[in-house]
């Protein structure tokens, strides 16, 4: 028998990414809850709140819009990924894949591709809503576009890795949504998504600053909102260097957790 070459991990990874997207977009409930929820929140909070942030001349609704784009990224990556992987582990999908010659990396490549595309989609939806209703403007200079791009990519990468890592925590697929939504909800409220971050009590600010969502929100504000807002930022600076460092640290931690704790089987199948 002549040996035929095994297909490359990248090729299978791309094919898995396309499959994941196809499945996601055909699941109407998933589309509505994952993509629609942040949009609904944007509408609600944008309707409730009025006025400007301090005396910066920045519309508070635009401040919220930038934060909700950040939390939308976390929703399509961390929450959605964590839940689907936990379910795939519980229903035996992962075990079946493990029994084929599919390279393990291809599974993660596929998940990452799907997360990137869905986050992009989510960001476009939120941005269009924000600009139509609350006058949110696209990045005004090439430098701000660059900031937007790297904060987006870093945010998606970090939240994807953490979503894969946390998928091993829920004991079953059913409890996954509950487990995943707790950190997501808490982080949204302590990271300056729905409030001006500097208005939060300083203890809460310090806790929020330990986690990535605060830095992704701040990074997106730095790309989308004018520098007059700096007066209302805690450090009176965009802190790009610190943002990069915190996200890199979480990225490394997430990667290590993925590599060391990922399970292809249920606990009882070990």
């Amino acid at each position: 028998m002549t040996a035929a070459a095994l297909p490359s991990p990248l090729r299978i990874g791309l094919s898995r990414g396309a499959l994941e997207l196809k499945v996601f977009l055909r699941e109407r409930a998933a589309v509505i809850f994952t993509l629609g929820m942040p949009a609904i929140l944007l509408l609600i909070f944008g309707t409730i709140f009025k006025g400007e942030v301090g005396r910066t001349g920045v519309d508070f609704r635009q401040y919220i819009a930038a934060g909700i784009i950040a939390s939308g990224i976390m929703s399509t990556t961390f929450v959605s990924l964590g839940i689907t992987i936990a379910q795939e582990r519980d229903d035996g999908t992962l075990k079946r894949l493990y029994g084929t010659p599919m390279p393990r990396a291809a599974y993660f490549i596929g998940k990452t591709i799907a997360a990137l595309v869905l986050s992009l989609l989510e960001t476009v939806v939120l941005f269009v809503l924000g600009s139509l209703l609350f006058g949110l403007k696209p990045p005004s200079t090439p430098e701000r576009w660059l900031t937007f791009a790297w904060v987006f990519v870093a945010g998606v990468t970090v939240c994807t890795l953490l979503g894969i890592a946390i998928s091993s925590v829920p004991r079953s697929g059913r409890s996954a949504a509950a487990v995943l939504n707790v950190p997501y909800l808490v982080l949204q409220f302590i990271s300056g998504v729905y409030y001006t971050f500097s208005d939060l009590p300083s203890g809460v600010q310090q806790v929020g600053a330990l986690f990535p969502l605060k830095w992704i929100s701040q990074g997106l504000r730095s790309a989308l909102l004018p520098d007059t807002l700096l007066a209302a930022e805690p450090a009176h600076s965009w802190e790009h260097g610190r943002t990069g460092l915190v996200l890199a640290a979480w990225g490394v931690a997430g990667l290590v957790l993925c590599l060391t704790t990922f399970r292809w089987k249920r606990r009882r199948d070990a």
Binding site: A3, A4, A5, L6, P7, R11, I12, S15, R16, L19, K22, V23, R26, E27, D91, G92, T93, R96, T100, P101, M102
Partner: peptide, 20 residues
């Protein structure tokens, strides 16, 4: 346990891509 949203041909064709 395969994805109920996929068609028979889609899932079989996808798995075919895993094998040499």
């Amino acid at each position: 346990n395969e994805q109920p949203e996929l068609s028979v041909r889609e899932i079989v064709a996808h798995f075919a891509g895993y094998y040499p």
